[in-house]
């Protein structure tokens, strides 16, 4: 499970910081957004979903110690 948490935490950073050169294009325009902005928009929605995934895993693994 640790590896899943690690991936859920790291993938948004890779997608939004390191993969920018691959998406730095206008076309195709998707749903009214140039590719570059569409990519940012998608990750704006996926990142909190990933964080929610981490939350669920941690919670089912006995919750949080504090």
């Amino acid at each position: 499970m640790k590896i899943v948490i690690f991936l859920l935490a790291v993938i948004p950073f890779v997608a939004q910081l390191l993969m920018i050169p691959l998406v730095n294009h206008i076309n195709p325009i998707i749903m009214g957004f140039p590719l570059f902005h569409f990519w940012l928009l998608i990750w704006m929605i996926l990142t909190p979903i990933f964080t929610f995934g981490i939350y669920l895993i941690q919670k089912s693994n006995g919750g949080f110690k504090e």
Binding site: A9, F36, I54
Partner: peptide, 27 residues
């Protein structure tokens, strides 16, 4: 132009980082 959109990943990525350390520093 689009350089201004750095603010999108900036704020979005601040939260997963915050998710891990905020509860700790809060307690």
């Amino acid at each position: 132009g689009s350089i201004a959109f750095f603010a999108t990943p900036y704020v979005i990525l601040a939260y997963p980082i915050a998710y891990f350390f905020l509860p700790k520093i809060w307690s």
